[in-house]
């Protein structure tokens, strides 16, 4: 794993090809072996290695845009689209399924872009939630990029 770069670790992690424990070791190894890629780089605001890699993390291209999602980084989920950060806010909310099944309370994530459309993210049924949110935002953006204001934090 010594030559494995971060993207590979993420890719393998996302595919479940390495165990979480291996990913942790790889992450620590990388962290000590080289400076975190992109650390301090304003164009890469999520730069730097996580202490613990999450198998749900992703770094891929969707409809021509690079989407990168990190789970539970510094206690929260983080997302960049074409290296521009999108602030995410966690809310507890009622979900009313479109298929007519009973409403339930869950934890959803919103942003400046999906402001009225919280997306559930967890490690079981909604383990692909962050990717789903990223794709939803790419669809809202169309041909355009995130503006700087999308990175502003806000509480609910």
């Amino acid at each position: 794993m010594a030559k494995t770069n971060r993207r590979d670790v993420l890719r393998y992690g996302a595919a479940g090809a390495v165990t979480a424990a291996t990913a942790v070791v790889a992450g620590q190894e990388l962290a000590s072996a080289e400076p975190p890629p992109g650390a301090g780089d304003p164009k890469n605001p999520l730069g730097g290695l996580k202490n613990v890699l999450d198998p749900r993390d992703f770094d891929e291209v969707f409809k021509g845009k690079k989407i990168r999602g990190l789970h539970n980084q510094r206690g929260r989920n983080e997302l960049t689209i074409n290296n521009r950060r999108l602030a995410l806010t966690e809310i507890s909310t009622l979900f009313v399924p479109a298929d007519g099944s009973p409403p339930y309370v869950g934890v959803g994530w919103i942003s400046a872009l999906n402001h009225y459309d919280p997306v559930e993210i967890d490690s079981s049924r909604n383990r692909e939630g962050l990717r789903k949110l990223a794709r939803k935002v790419v669809d809202i953006l169309g041909d355009y990029e995130l503006a700087d204001g999308a990175a502003d934090e806000h509480g609910h």
Binding site: D117, G142, G149
Partner: peptide, 19 residues
Amino acid sequence: YRSSIQTSFLQRRVGQSAS
């Protein structure tokens, strides 16, 4: 004003993500 999408054009995508 204060658009979080980098564009000068108002964006609409009627019916594409919800009914």
